[in-house]
Each structure stands twice: as structure tokens, then as C-alpha cells.
């Protein structure tokens, strides 16, 4: 064939250009992630390597006094704060989300989905500063009037976060429920089971791993959320004694202090260590999601 003579014809060049461009884009993704991990890790580890702070002190020390004469970098209040608001938010949001998903797929599959789908999408679309603003001007005054304390604190943070992660859990749960084979339900109904019996004994146990995926994704979002939490949690660097006491999270202390510290100072480095913790938690959440997905496949 003639084409054998010249290797580079028009279509070869086109394909080459296309492939090079795509390779560039994919390579960029790889470079971004590698440099992110590298830069955050090298900054975050300097607290322990050159700063002389022990890993134990950082993770379990409760005294956060980075600017004292003998500074101490106990980040436990922030780490525990992050875990606390995340778990509380998941505890509040999960039942609500599962109900919403059941409503969309099992109770009134037609208009239930038509009603809740846009609601969920809009909730997901509201920016986090707006959630923070509403938390500050609605939830905090409400808590202040109803419970002891100033209103700001762990409870306010968890409530704001729970609304923010509702859409994540609901949409994953609804997808899982919708993917359930029809005959599974029918055979349960055929045995004379009521709808709730079917839901509680057949539907929920079967879809639990998928729903848990949604819960973990929601928790990942809650753990990393910065501004909304920072605005309502009070930002006191202590482990709170009650849910209505001011506290801090990793994200809130980074948000507040990063701009006021000089690069390279041990105070600043400690904040980077917290960013590293956030990053490692992201890996953990992604790993957990993958684990659940794999279990779900079997």
C-alpha cells in the first residue's frame, strides 16, 4: 500500500498531537498530586524533625501555647475537636439522609424523587460561608437561648456540618437503594412482610455497605470543612467539657492562624503539621471508601 512509504501522514500527525496533549494533561494531574504530598509533607514533618517536637506531644499533648516563652505544641484539642464534630455530624445526618433516600426510592418513588432531588442538589450547592453565616445568625442564637453557654461550640459546629453533609449521604444512599434488584423486595412482600419489615430486614442490611460509603464520604467532607465550622465553633484551643463549650478543629485553627504567623516559625510549622494530618485523613477516608466499595462488590 502507498501508505507504507511515508510513515507520517495526516492522520498519524493528528493522533500524535492528540496523544501528546492528553499525556500532558494526565502528567499534570500526577505532578500536582505528587507536589502536593511532597510540599505539605516536608513542611508538616519539619515540626518533628527540626522543631524537636515529639510525635507523642503533638498528637496527645493538650497544651497549645505556641507563642509562650517555653512553647508547647499539643494539637490534641484540635485533632479531637475535628473528630468530635465529624462524628456528631455523621450521627445527626445519617438517619435523616437514610430516611430521605428511603422516601425517594421506597415510599413515594415518583414525586418523592422529583421533590427531594432538587432539594438535595441545592443544599449541596450552597457555599460553605453561607452555611457559616446562617449558623452564626440562626443556630448559635438558638443554642444560646436554649442551652447553657454562649451558643458557639461543638454542638453548633456539628449541626452546621450535618446539614452540609446531608446531600452527600443522601445521594449515595438513594443510588444504592435504587440499584437494588426489584425481585428482592417482591419476594419479601410475597412472604407477607410489611413495608417496614422489608426495609429493615431486607433492604437496609443489603445496602448497608453502600450507605456506609456515603457516610464515610460525608465524614470526609465534614472533617475537611474549614470556614463554616470555624465561624460557629468558638475557636478556643481546649478540649471542651461539654458540647456547648467553645472548641477548635484542625481546619479552624489553620484558617485563623496561618495568616498571622511567619513562614518557617515553629508556630507556622505546627500548622503545617496539622495540614499534613488533614491530608493523611483524606487518604484514610479514600482508602475506607475503596474498602467498602470492594466489599460491596462481592
Amino acid at each position: 500500500m502507498k501508505s507504507k512509504k511515508s510513515r507520517l501522514e495526516k492522520h498519524h500527525i493528528e493522533d500524535l498531537v492528540g496523544r501528546s496533549y492528553m499525556a500532558f494533561c494526565v502528567l499534570l494531574l500526577i505532578v500536582i498530586i505528587i507536589s502536593m504530598v511532597y510540599f505539605v509533607a516536608s513542611k508538616g514533618l519539619s515540626t518533628f524533625i527540626t522543631g524537636g517536637v515529639s510525635v507523642g506531644e503533638f498528637f496527645f499533648g493538650t497544651k497549645w501555647a505556641p507563642e509562650a516563652d517555653t512553647p508547647s505544641f499539643g494539637a490534641f484539642p484540635f485533632i479531637s475537636g475535628s473528630f468530635l464534630v465529624t462524628l456528631l455530624a455523621a450521627l445527626i445526618a445519617s438517619p435523616l439522609s437514610i430516611c430521605a433516600a428511603l422516601f425517594m426510592t421506597e415510599i413515594v418513588p415518583g414525586w418523592g424523587k422529583k421533590l427531594l432531588q432538587p432539594v438535595i442538589e441545592l443544599l449541596a450547592g450552597i457555599p460553605s460561608v453561607v452555611y457559616g453565616f446562617i449558623g452564626l445568625s440562626v443556630i448559635v442564637p438558638f443554642l444560646r437561648d436554649t442551652f447553657p453557654g454562649q451558643g458557639i461550640g461543638v454542638a453548633a459546629g456539628a449541626l452546621v456540618l450535618s446539614v452540609m453533609i446531608l446531600p452527600t449521604i443522601t445521594s449515595v444512599a438513594a443510588d444504592a437503594l435504587a440499584a437494588l434488584p426489584q425481585n428482592l423486595k417482591e419476594s419479601s412482600f410475597a412472604l407477607g412482610a410489611t413495608r417496614w419489615q422489608t426495609i429493615s430486614r431486607v433492604i437496609l442490611p443489603t445496602t448497608m455497605p453502600s450507605i456506609m460509603t456515603g457516610v464515610v464520604l460525608g465524614m470526609a467532607r465534614a472533617f475537611g470543612e474549614a470556614l463554616a465550622v470555624q465561624m460557629v465553633i468558638g475557636n478556643a484551643p481546649f478540649v471542651p467539657k461539654s458540647l456547648f463549650e467553645s472548641a477548635s478543629t484542625l481546619t479552624s485553627v489553620i484558617t485563623l492562624s496561618m495568616g498571622n504567623t511567619t513562614m518557617g516559625s515553629s508556630y507556622n510549622n505546627a500548622l503545617w503539621s496539622m495540614a499534613l494530618v488533614l491530608m493523611l485523613m483524606t487518604f484514610a477516608f479514600v482508602g475506607l471508601v475503596r474498602l467498602l466499595e470492594r466489599r460491596n462488590k462481592i
Partner: peptide
């Protein structure tokens, strides 16, 4: 591997992305 990268990148908290931007 690329799929994993996309998943991890989209899961990073935005504050961490901001910090990375600040640094780099």
C-alpha cells in the same frame, strides 16, 4: 492509578488546596 489520583485530588479539603497554593 490515575483514577485513584483523581479521586484523592477531589477529596482533598479545600483548605489544604489553599495551603498548597500558598506554599507553591
Amino acid at each position: 492509578f490515575i483514577r485513584l489520583i483523581v479521586e484523592v485530588l477531589s477529596s482533598f479539603p479545600s483548605i489544604v488546596v489553599g495551603l498548597f497554593g500558598l506554599l507553591l
